[in-house]
């Protein structure tokens, strides 16, 4: 994971609006089925879980499997209820977790 994750959340929304959230993260998503030059299996290293929470409450979680391509992109919708912070977390097989946060103002 070299680059920082890219996240797009509208800065403002009216109460009750359905907003679109988009995320993109850099990850090689090594499948665990490929072999290196010497014929040794390259160990699996994929992002296996993605979680999005809003003000501490989980609103979306996804389990990922080896067929997902490198640099996974997620887009989903949420209903704007109150101002607050979206937290995004990507966890991989190495036990690393990358997080990002984005604020929204709901009026």
């Amino acid at each position: 994971m070299s680059a920082k994750p890219r996240v797009k959340v509208p800065k403002k929304a009216a109460k009750g609006d359905i907003i679109q959230i988009k995320t993109l993260i850099s990850h090689k998503m090594e499948t665990g089925t490929r072999k290196d030059k010497n014929g040794n299996v390259i160990p699996r290293n994929i992002i296996n879980k993605f979680v999005c929470s809003f003000n501490g409450t989980e609103i979306l979680s996804a389990e990922l499997f080896p067929s997902v391509a490198a640099n996974p992109y997620f887009a989903f919708s949420a209903r704007a209820t109150e101002s607050g912070t979206f937290e995004f977390a990507w966890s991989d097989d190495d036990g690393k977790t990358v997080t990002a946060t984005e604020k929204i103002t709901v009026s």
């Binding site: 070299s2 680059a3 890219r6 993109l24 993260i25 992109y73």
Partner: peptide, 14 residues
């Protein structure tokens, strides 16, 4: 055409 979907932008950020 969507700069968030376009994975090249991970490199543009670098």
């Amino acid at each position: 055409t969507d700069d968030i979907q376009n994975p090249s932008f991970l490199w543009v950020d670098i």
